[in-house]
Write a protein that binds this DNA or RNA. Structure first.
Lengths: 227, 227
DNA sequence: GGGATTTTACCCCATTCGGGGGATTTATTT
DNA sequence: AAATAAATCCCCCGAATGGGGTAAAATCCC
């Protein structure tokens, strides 16, 4: 019965450690409930392969390593969730620091499992996440509880980059105005500068943020809470 | 070997539903790793029995129902954690409302399991909680993630107006694309519509949102989480 | 003191945007 | 069936935007 095929969950793995990835793939292949559709060794690799898939073939759940060469798992998650993709992402990693956990949640990961999770639990987690649950390793959950209890984010000390882009003070100021929805001329009047200057700043901001429109800049600025 | 006895986890159940309590006790008794030391049908019952225990016999993990006659499971948890007792408490309940979850965390519960959790998982959770983990049912965890993500407490049913503007479905769809930072032409290609149509929609969106630029629309859309 | 960065300002040019119209077709509601 | 609202497509036009330059102060850093 092909119906079986229809019901299987399409799962993807993004993991750079060759042997680990291989073993995990092999293990998951034992499960009839799953269909391993895309195994990548980096985010770039993943995105590249992803383009060759049709809508109905796209992975529904991704096991995402955090520490990856090039684009990190967190950044990759951010991009995936930005797009319209209907996909649930499980961070699958050895890291337990508050910073990474918090960031993963912020960018939209719906699960967080440690790599030593028994394979049966991993498979259950994959199924649960599709049903709207958020499988989380107990030791991670403990940290989450603390966050909720204290209502605090782990921004405290280890804030390597509050601003992912190194905008200069002046640029941030301008960006704030842009987020307010003002035009260049309006900003210029507000800050007593030439409209040309504003324009130059905005061009530089775009370069640094890697966008090419105000809308995109506003979106990024808000999402990454630069302003 | 009595050593075995030493290593077994002393577990307690507080649950008012007679049959459920009985069955759960029977099931847990199958597990050699556990020692069911105190089964109570109410918080009062529990505290009363607790006094008859010596220090070395006190339960280390408690499966605590929330809805109890008299003192609630949350209140009981609060009192237990107020005292010096070295005990980990797992809320074991059918409730999934943000309010109860949040309160349970506040008073110091370290785990939150739904009553339909498979018995094996319950036992694992008991062991994990003693190792500093916080076992949480996935559907509960999802709510936790939301709390962390939005940094909000479930103080009220709040959300007086999820969408302050009555955008039509099509308009919301277009708005989403605008938030992505796309140009009218790009949107048109994505949605297989004429650029003129997109433009018309956007003009209407602006009217409804009372803005006059993409940047402003994006900001509003994100702030009011329309998209 | 000297190089690097930031801030400021300007030019040209093609594209996009925003606002003003109008018009037809398809639901939806009444 | 008539009225309303939603969704689609089109035109004109001036203003704003985005991208490519150049360049001179001011400031910061070593």
């Amino acid at each position: 019965m092909e119906q079986n095929t229809e019901e299987r969950l399409r799962v993807s793995i993004v993991e750079d450690h060759d042997i680990f990835r291989k073993r995990l793939s092999e293990l998951l292949n034992f499960y009839n409930e799953l269909d391993l559709v895309l195994v990548a060794s980096s985010a770039e690799d993943f995105f590249e392969k992803l383009e060759r898939y049709k809508e109905e073939e796209l992975p529904q759940v991704i096991l995402m390593d955090i520490e990856l060469p090039g684009i990190s798992g967190i950044e990759a998650t951010f991009r995936l969730k930005e797009d319209k993709h209907d996909v649930d992402i499980i961070m699958f990693t050895v890291f337990e620091d508050d910073e990474r956990i918090f960031e993963s949640i912020q960018v939209g990961a719906a699960g967080y499992l440690l790599k030593d999770t028994p394979i049966d639990d991993v498979v259950n987690s994959i199924k649960e996440i599709r049903q709207g649950g958020s499988p989380i390793s107990p030791s991670i959950a403990r940290k989450l509880l603390t966050m909720v209890k204290t209502g605090e984010k782990p921004n405290s000390k280890s804030n390597p980059e509050e601003v992912p882009f190194d905008l200069s003070p002046a640029e941030i100021k301008i960006l704030e105005h842009v987020v307010q929805g003002k035009t260049n001329k309006e900003i210029a009047e507000d800050v007593f500068l030439s409209p040309w200057t504003i324009k130059t700043h905005i061009k530089n901001i775009y370069k640094k943020m890697q966008v090419n429109s105000r809308a995109a800049a506003v979106r990024l600025a808000l999402k990454r809470k630069i302003v």
